[in-house]
Write a protein that binds this DNA or RNA. Structure first.
Lengths: 342, 342
DNA sequence: CTTGCTTTTGCAATCGATTGCGGTAGCGTT
DNA sequence: AACGCTACCGCAATCGATTGCAAAAGCAAG
């Protein structure tokens, strides 16, 4: 009834007039304790407002019922986890994880000095890890995966990769987007994104392949480094416009970059899709709502998150789950002209 | 060097040829150990890839270096934390918390049965709690606050509230928004939101006061229940439109609701802001990007999050921090016609 | 070589649960 | 009544760190 002092299992044992062992087993629904007694003890514990101390439990059981979700920000100094894509991914992951009765621990990594991943792993704060985005930490991930199994990465599938990853077919997605632009008669297609990031570099590969297949020579002046934040992307687009380089389409490697580019174009008095077609990547919620609505390569995050967590739990159970690739879908809207469905 | 077996403090002690006590103190930078020896032990530990087991540490120290962030979803069956407002708040809170060297544990509460908050508190998984949104749990919060101090709530300031809360002046914000609409000559202003939620009910209070001050009689037919999700809000707006009730403005209690309303109006062939002025609440990032750009009551989330965490840490230190109220700002854009700054 | 003081060090208890294993109670047979 | 068998129960060790307290070591002065 009264619940001022945080009461321990021993207190419940006293109340129920049994030993701690029995209480522990009863609360764990261990059939070693007869059913009616189990219920009785559970009732007493609940009534007393008793809750198992998770720190003690974690120590003894060597598991925490917690999954760590890590956002390596090594490549970007901006601290805030603000990108809508990451945010949505996080929400979906959280859903999948909590549904399975686990807690979600957010690990925002800013200090990617030697051994950062090992420090997280060895802290034993979580039973498994999801790493969202490889950032520039491919090597560190490869190394950690050698000895730590319950780890799944969202990102591109790279050469010589030993860790388990889930991600969209970046090359294929990009290829499809650029093919679509080419199909509309566009020939001078700018590429906006940070080639240093593995996923982006794969998208670049798709871009190059599409151009090559169409027999179009690629122009380095059309490849523009652009970070993920709206402001920096806007700046990058503005510079492209002011450089005087001719272009009639933009393949942006994220929707945020695409939206920033559209705004920059509008500010420069250029019509989208009249003069310039724009395609984004991710198909975040705003994409459909923007003006004009954005054509984008859709990543199925719901499925992605589910796959990640499925694989993670398999690995936590000792099974050896392989990487998975999701198929992207081009969602055609007004931002690139034309009207065919993709 | 080799780091296959998860090594413990005892192992490091052996390596450094000292006792565990000394290692523990050295790693904690305890001045009881001479500086040079401290450094030496730290070096040895780091080289061996040793990391303190947090479960054990938490148990012994009775603190976890973790803050729980709770989203009570009692009022809404939709599981996903998808509302951009909550998402942004979460990101900012995470920033503030990690900056202070604490971890963030996400608690998505779906089971708000008797004692849910107590179960979280007594689990001892965290050293402090941030509750984002009161949902319909005012009573539970009030009760918990009696015995549990390190707890801060984002939400409205209610009568008879004993817990510490941080929130925007909802009444004032709503008042300003509606006054603005009235100033534009609008007289039939619809209110879209869930009155069951404390914050929304405060905004309703502001709405009522504004109307009363302007000598306009309020019409119950103009008060429409609308959830936070885009789809349900769209539906609510559509029903308002189809009901035939006359109206020339909408005060939406969130930007998502406002955006949904604008789409519904557009679908019905009604011009915004020509026929109907729309004002939202929160001023989320998309608000400025929508068509037409949305007038909205801005909540300063960066400041809000900082205030919440500041207060929480004060409370964790045993001080008694009082509730705080933030001043909202009306950001005027095209969605309500007119051009004056608010 | 003592003595007295300061600086370091380590023993052992502790945090609050879980669980292997040995012991007891209860019941049915002979 | 004695025995055997199951079904329950609880003792005590354990998880891996932290820390009060006492002991040891170092050092200077007498």
């Amino acid at each position: 009834m009264a619940e001022d002092g945080p009461l321990k299992m021993a207190d419940v044992a006293r109340l129920a007039k049994v030993s701690m062992s029995t209480v522990s087993r009863a609360l764990a629904d261990n059939p070693l304790i007869p059913e009616d007694r189990r219920r009785e003890i559970q009732r007493i514990a609940a009534e007393a407002g008793y809750v198992i101390n998770q720190s003690a439990r974690s120590l003894r059981m060597r598991k925490t019922q917690t999954i760590g979700v890590v956002f390596p920000l090594g490549h970007d100094v901006g601290q805030l986890i603000s990108d809508p894509f990451f945010i949505e991914m996080f929400g979906r992951l959280a859903d999948e994880i909590t549904t399975r009765g686990y807690q979600v621990l957010l690990c925002r990594v800013t200090d990617t000095s030697e051994g950062w991943l090992n420090r997280i792993i060895q802290s034993h704060r979580q039973d498994g890890l999801v790493i969202v985005g490889q950032s520039d930490q491919h090597e560190a991930l490869n190394q950690a995966a050698g000895s730590y199994h319950p780890l799944v990465v969202w990102g591109g599938h790279l050469n010589g990769q030993t860790y388990c990853s889930v991600g969209t077919d970046n090359i294929g997605g990009a290829r499809r987007a650029v093919d679509h632009l080419l199909g509309l008669g566009r020939k001078r297609i700018a590429f906006l994104g940070m080639l240093e990031l593995p996923e982006i570099s794969l998208r670049y590969e798709g871009y190059v392949r599409a151009l090559r297949a169409a027999g179009i020579e690629q122009d380095p002046a059309l490849v523009i480094p652009a970070h993920f934040s709206f402001e920096t992307a806007y700046e990058a687009a503005r510079e492209l416009i002011e450089s005087g380089t001719e272009f009639d389409a933009i393949f942006a490697t994220s929707d945020i970059i695409a939206l920033a580019a559209i705004q920059a174009l509008a500010a420069a008095g250029m019509d989208v899709p009249g003069q310039v077609s724009v395609v984004g990547f991710d198909d975040i919620a705003i994409a459909a709502q923007s003006t004009p609505p954005l054509t984008s390569v859709q990543q199925d995050l719901a499925k992605g998150a589910k796959t990640i967590v499925d694989l993670l739990f398999k690995r936590m159970a000792g099974e050896d789950a392989p990487s998975a690739t999701l198929l992207p879908k081009l969602v055609v809207r007004k931002s690139c002209g034309g009207t065919s469905a993709g």
